Amino acid sequence: ADDEVAKLLVDAYRKNDEDKLEEVKKRYNISDEQVKRLIRKVL
């Protein structure tokens, strides 16, 4: 599931889509710190 979330985050990140990032964060209840970590893992 982590990889799936990471893909969604990276996708939103690449598109610079703040709304999507927020949506994913809320849906999976993850912190900014986790977001950064997941994005770093993929990029």
Rank of each mutant, 00 (worst) to 15 (best):
I39F: 03
L38F: 04
K25Y: 01
D2I: 12
A6C: 15
N16I: 03
A6R: 08
K41V: 08
R37Y: 05
D11F: 00
E4R: 10
E23Y: 07
D3I: 10
D19G: 12
D32Q: 05
L21E: 00
A12L: 09
V42M: 14
L38E: 03
D3C: 15
D11N: 04
D19M: 12
D3A: 12
L9V: 09
D19E: 14
E18I: 15
D11E: 12
V35W: 08
E4A: 10
Q34P: 02
K25I: 05
K25D: 00
R14T: 13
V5T: 04
K25L: 03
K20Q: 10
K20G: 11
A12F: 05
A6H: 07
R40W: 11
I30L: 15
E18C: 15
L9E: 00
V24D: 00
V24A: 04
D2N: 11
K7F: 09
Y13R: 02
K26G: 05
D2M: 14
L9Y: 01
D3K: 09
V42S: 09
V35K: 01
A6L: 14
K7M: 11
Q34V: 11
A12Q: 01
R14H: 12
Q34K: 06
L21N: 00
E33L: 05
L8E: 09
A1M: 15
A6F: 11
I30D: 00
Q34W: 09
I30F: 07
K36I: 13
Q34I: 09
V35Q: 02
E22N: 13
L38W: 02
K7W: 13
D3F: 11
N16V: 03
E18F: 15
E23W: 09
A1F: 15
R27W: 05
D17K: 03
R14F: 15
V5A: 06
L43Y: 06
K15E: 14
D19T: 12
R14S: 12
D32G: 04
D19V: 13
R37L: 07
K7Q: 12
Y28I: 02
L21M: 12
E4L: 12
D2K: 08
R37A: 14
V10L: 15
N16G: 15
I30R: 01
L43E: 08
N29L: 05
D3L: 10
V10T: 08
V42T: 09
L43Q: 06
I30T: 01
R37N: 13
A12I: 04
D17H: 04
K41T: 11
D19P: 07
Q34S: 07
R37D: 15
K36G: 09
D2F: 14
K15I: 08
V42Y: 15
E22T: 09
K20H: 06
N16E: 07
D17Y: 03
K7R: 13
E4W: 14
R14V: 14
R27F: 08
V42N: 07
E4I: 13
L38V: 09
E23T: 06
D32M: 05
E4M: 12
K41I: 10
R40S: 14
K26C: 05
V42G: 09
K20R: 12
D11Y: 01
I30P: 00
L8K: 06
E33W: 04
E33R: 05
A1H: 13
K15Q: 13
K7V: 06
Y13Q: 03
K26T: 08
A1N: 13
K36Q: 13
Y28H: 06
R37M: 08
A1D: 13
L9I: 13
R27S: 06
K36W: 07
I39L: 13
I39Y: 01
A1P: 14
L43K: 05
A12S: 03
A6V: 14
R37T: 10
